[in-house]
């Protein structure tokens, strides 16, 4: 197999819809009953590049696998549920730290999923109408609720991430560009999300390749890390 050139990781609490987003993008459909066991690895051909995508379960911190999924990542997609404020808070509290092993120039996207359930959805559709070829399935939206998390909250989180990563706003993509609202159920902005990310990952791949193959560094990293670890393990 061709080694993947770049790595994208989906992180976020259980049930926010990470697997559904990936299903929608890769398989063009939505399945109501999806359950994830741990992490799942997918390969996506993007132009001449092989991009690997890790879907995670939301228990990574508990299982200590987060750093493995994130190691060397060129992009991290932090996902929350727009109807669940806690899921946004968890991103900062539990998931941000897992990205410490990501590539130094890793890009971050913040994605609020399940917008189809909110009362703002119709409005969003109108605004985005021209650019959307697919007709959304409006019939399945019956119980609309007041949105709990607004785009501003996501933007605020994005800025906190930059601070955490000690990055300058001038050197990274603008918050407005990196905060998305999607619906895996209707497909709203799902392609847009992944394609935007993949396009942004390409320059990172090129830089990583210029500096040496990241995936092999991956394995060497782990070996030296393990050796030191077993040295201090009781």
């Amino acid at each position: 197999m061709k080694k993947p050139d770049g790595k994208v990781v989906l992180l976020g609490d259980m049930n926010v819809g990470k697997t559904s987003l990936l299903h929608r993008y890769m398989e063009r459909r939505f399945q109501d009953t999806i359950s994830t066991v741990g992490g799942a690895f997918y390969l996506k051909q993007w132009g001449p590049y092989n991009i690997s995508i890790w879907d995670t379960a939301g228990r990574e911190q508990f299982h200590g696998l987060g750093s493995m999924y994130c190691r060397g990542a060129a992009a991290v997609i932090l996902t929350y549920d727009v109807n669940n404020l806690q899921s946004l808070i968890e991103l900062e509290d539990r998931f941000l730290a897992l990205t410490d092993t990501a590539s130094t120039d890793c890009i971050f996207a913040i994605v609020g999923n399940k917008v189809d359930l909110t009362n703002e959805y119709a409005l969003l559709l109108e605004r985005a109408d021209e650019s959307r070829p697919e007709k959304p399935v409006t019939s399945c939206i019956s119980t609309k609720v007041q949105k709990q998390v607004h785009l501003d909250d996501a933007v605020a989180l994005y800025k906190k991430i930059l601070k955490y990563k000690m990055l300058d706003e001038k050197d990274v993509p603008a918050a407005e560009k990196m905060c998305f609202e999607t619906s895996a159920k209707t497909g709203y902005k799902v392609d847009y999300l992944f394609e935007t990310i993949f396009d942004m990952v390409v320059p990172i791949i090129l830089r990583q390749q210029a500096e040496g193959p990241p995936q092999t560094v991956d394995i060497t990293n782990y070996k030296s890390a393990k050796r030191t670890k077993s040295g201090c393990c009781a």
Partner: peptide, 18 residues
């Protein structure tokens, strides 16, 4: 059972603690 209960799709490879 764990495997059977999770969504199967052919493209993916699962890596999970068990």
């Amino acid at each position: 059972n764990l495997i059977g209960a999770s969504s199967a799709f052919q493209a993916g490879e699962i890596w999970t603690p068990i």
